[in-house]
């Protein structure tokens, strides 16, 4: 236990994190899967399977990471940033 007692996170904050972990994590994973499936080299089957296996790992990572920051906004940034990156990559990929 920490020597200086910190303010315990409230219920609302925890609910917020759970939503970010499950909903946000799913969004990151889905976008990652869809984007990586067309960006990865090799036959379609290898790309698709690699993409969804990596997506699962990302899901777990994001779901863990959103519990780390003190502020809820930072937690959502952890979700939205990769979403934006994958959307952008997917958009650029589909143009090329």
């Amino acid at each position: 236990m920490a020597l200086v007692k910190q303010a315990a996170p409230g219920r609302k904050a925890v609910l917020n994190r759970i939503a970010a972990a499950l909903g946000g994590g799913y969004a990151v994973a889905a976008l990652a899967a869809s984007t990586l499936a067309v960006m990865l080299p090799g036959p379609a089957i290898e790309a698709a399977v690699t993409a969804h296996l990596l997506a699962y790992l990302l899901f777990v990572l994001v779901a863990l990471a959103v519990f780390v920051p003190r502020r809820g906004a930072t937690a959502w940034a952890i979700v939205l940033l990769p979403c934006a990156v994958f959307l952008l990559a997917g958009w650029l990929g589909s143009r090329g």
């Binding site: 994973a29 889905a30 976008l31 899967a33 869809s34 984007t35 990586l36 499936a37 067309v38 379609a44 089957i45 790309a47 698709a48 399977v49 993409a51 969804h52 296996l53 997506a55 699962y56 899901f59």
Partner: peptide, 15 residues
């Protein structure tokens, strides 16, 4: 992994 095609079908959908 066993439920991928239902829970995380987006890679398959796209590819």
């Amino acid at each position: 992994v066993t439920l991928t095609s239902m829970f995380m079908p987006w890679a398959i959908q796209r590819a």
